[in-house]
């Protein structure tokens, strides 16, 4: 039996010495499965000690650096049934093998398309998949923030059958090693959707803070998710309710003080998460909380036009009940 031993990090300097013929500890990965169907894939996963290879943008570098050494790999590139996407009257269904590039320009979901367009670089968008983003569940993942805002069901298959779980529970509990994310189901858009993020360089690093905001003109609702604050996207429930009451749904406009108050409530919610991500180098948690409020106010302002001053009576406008200092979060 060969035991994996700790291996020094592979970087540019040690690249040549990492040549496999001189490597003292051979990689543990011994088998690659390339199933053609979901049924084949979950059967292989049922045997255990296997990692799923979706787009490879996270896993392949980790394999190369020997941060991960699964005994077996299950590559999904040839499972064509995972690459489909479609819509019913009120739902969108997207296969786990759909790439960001495939979502770019998808007319059925302009918000999702706009989000996909700002993920990483063309190289990453051409390979990274919906299922891969969920499997990796990077707290800074763009897609996770968006799916959390719209309210998404994750379809999971295993050899024992299929189950469906909402995205928040999925991110809280994760996948069993024998399970495979096969699709996501989300409501068809019923209004404007915006995805905004702040970071250093889009193509080379994940967003520090992200905000997805979804307006539902039919059900008169605004939902919002903030990424980069906690280990999974944060849904600021109080802020969502505040803005729902503050919008004039007959005209779809929003008073400036509601926009500002919304930003403050989102920043407040970001400060109250039970499991905040630690301070980054040069980027404090306090900055990220502030940025969350700025992004949320900007997002709602982009989705809903400003109400004409005085259009909403002060007594009826719930905006008057919100936190003060209107305009503080306007950029």
């Amino acid at each position: 039996m060969i035991v994996a031993v700790p291996h020094q990090a592979t970087d540019q300097a040690t690249d040549q010495s990492a040549d496999q013929s001189t490597d003292p500890a051979p990689p543990r990965t011994a088998r690659l499965h390339r199933p053609l169907t979901v049924a084949e894939a979950v059967e292989i996963l049922a045997d255990g000690d296997a990692e799923i290879l979706a787009g490879g943008t996270d896993l392949v570098p980790a394999l190369r650096a020997r941060q991960r050494e699964p005994r077996r790999l299950v590559a999904l590139r040839r499972v064509l049934e995972l690459r489909s996407r479609g819509a019913s009257a009120n739902m969108l269904i997207i296969g786990a093998g759909v790439t960001y590039h495939d979502l770019t320009g998808w007319s059925l979901s302009p918000g999702l398309a706009a989000m996909a367009r700002v993920v990483g670089s063309p190289q990453i968008r051409n390979t990274g998949t919906v299922g891969g983003a969920l499997g990796t569940a990077n707290p800074r993942g763009d897609l996770l923030t968006f799916l959390s805002a719209v309210g998404t069901e994750i379809v999971i298959n295993s050899a024992r059958g299929a189950r469906t779980v909402d995205v928040a529970s999925f991110l809280a509990t994760g996948l069993a090693p024998t399970e495979l994310v096969t699709a996501v189901r989300l409501p068809r858009p019923c209004g404007p959707q915006v995805y905004l993020k702040i970071g250093s360089r889009q193509a080379a690093s994940a967003a520090l803070v992200s905000c997805a905001l979804v307006v539902d003109r039919v059900h008169e609702r605004v939902t919002c998710a903030i990424g980069g604050i906690a280990h999974q996207p944060t849904r600021p429930a109080a802020a969502e309710e505040f803005v729902r009451q503050g919008v004039d749904w007959s005209t779809g406009t929003i008073p400036a003080d509601v926009v500002a108050g919304f930003g403050e409530l989102v920043a407040e919610a970001a400060g109250a998460v039970p499991d905040p991500l630690p301070d980054d180098v040069g980027v404090s948690a306090a900055y990220r909380r502030h940025a969350a409020g700025v992004l949320a106010a900007r997002a709602v302002g982009r989705c809903l036009p400003a109400a004409a001053p005085g259009a909403i009576p002060g007594s009826a406008g719930p905006g008057s009940a919100g936190p003060g200092s209107a305009g503080r979060f306007r950029s």
């Binding site: 490879g56 392949v60 650096a65 790999l73 670089s121 190289q123 990453i124 051409n126 390979t127």
Partner: peptide, 27 residues
């Protein structure tokens, strides 16, 4: 970079631009 960030290993795979450091060769 070996992390899919720098693009110096870019190739086309089935006609799509990819970073070859993020592709498993055997796959």
């Amino acid at each position: 970079c070996e992390q899919g960030r720098c693009g110096s290993c870019s190739v086309l795979m089935d006609g799509r631009l990819v970073a070859s450091c993020t592709v498993l060769a055997a796959d």
